[in-house]
Amino acid sequence: MEEKSSHWITISDMMSGIMMIFMMIAIAFMVTIENDKKQLEQQNDKMRDLAKNYSNLQQELYKDLMKEFGKDLMKWNAFIDEDTTIRFQKQDILFDVGQKRVKERFQHILNDFFPRYIKILYSEKYRDFIEDIRIEGHTSQDWEGAQSLERRYLGNAELSQERAFQVLKYCFSLPSIADKQEWLITLLRANGVSFAKPLATDELSRRVEFQASFKANEQIQKILEAASNKK
């Protein structure tokens, strides 16, 4: 009888041990989930802060651009969007039809606009946060003599790229920004967009745009990499 009782005690102890193991695993799992939850909350907080900072920078830049150029926009036939895109949008001022040479009237505008624009972007408020400064050439969907979509697109892609480059070349050579050239080399880009981003009319679609973008993508990538390294 004693031997049988001892046998059941051993099984009972074993079951208790197994239960303790399961409890420890459950507790460890709960702790892991709680830690992951805290890490996720921290990442979300960082992302929210980043989004807020990005939005604040855009808003501040928009205000500074409007303060600097607001009185000039009408005479330049220009427009500043809330995403800080500056749009020069009157074809007969910018280029001759089908040509890439920057017209004299647009050169005078760039002489006035670009040094003031760079002065804002180079200010302490924005300088370290700028990822790139893009000059974009845009066209309408027209292309003389072209019947196919491919011919119209490729012809306008080449023309828009040449126009954007000619604007970049002219701006970069201005004596008034000579002391910023090394900085601009790392940031200034010329992109031809063809008619990929049309506006309401063909006339408005034929335009040149300037836009500075901030380092949000770079910061997001750093946060994601940091989170990945903790796993």
Rank of each mutant, 00 (worst) to 15 (best):
I185C: 09
R127D: 13
A78N: 01
L184K: 02
Q99W: 08
S16P: 05
S173E: 04
I11M: 13
E104K: 02
K4I: 15
L65W: 01
E60G: 14
V208S: 01
N35V: 02
E82P: 03
E124R: 08
L199D: 07
E144Y: 10
I185F: 06
G145R: 03
Q39L: 06
L94M: 04
S160V: 05
K215F: 01
I33M: 11
L188K: 06
E2M: 12
Q42R: 12
Q219S: 07
R189E: 15
F22N: 09
L149S: 15
L110D: 00
M30A: 12
Q221I: 10
G192F: 03
E150D: 15
D92K: 11
E144D: 08
L199Q: 04
E60K: 13
D49C: 04
K52G: 10
P198Y: 02
W183S: 03
D81L: 14
V167Y: 01
S205A: 08
M20D: 10
K71V: 09
K75Q: 13
H7I: 04
D128F: 03
K103T: 11
I93L: 02
I11A: 12
A227P: 02
E150K: 15
G137H: 03
K180A: 08
A78F: 08
L73T: 08
K46H: 14
H138S: 04
L50C: 05
R207T: 02
D96K: 04
R152C: 14
A164K: 03
K103F: 04
V102N: 00
Q58I: 13
F69T: 04
S205W: 03
M1T: 11
P198V: 14
I223Y: 06
G155Q: 02
K222V: 11
R189K: 15
I93E: 01
K71D: 14
R127I: 15
G17Y: 06
N77A: 10
S176W: 07
D81F: 11
F214I: 08
S173P: 07
S160Q: 06
A227I: 03
I133R: 00
L159H: 05
M20K: 11
W8G: 05
D13W: 13
K4N: 15
F79K: 11
T84M: 01
I25Q: 11
F106I: 08
Y153C: 09
K63I: 12
Y122N: 15
I109R: 00
S205V: 09
S12D: 11
H138E: 05
L224M: 09
L187D: 04
E150L: 14
I135L: 09
D45M: 07
R105V: 12
E3R: 14
Q219C: 05
K119A: 09
D36T: 00
R207E: 02
V97E: 07
S16V: 07
I177A: 00
E3W: 06
N111Q: 12
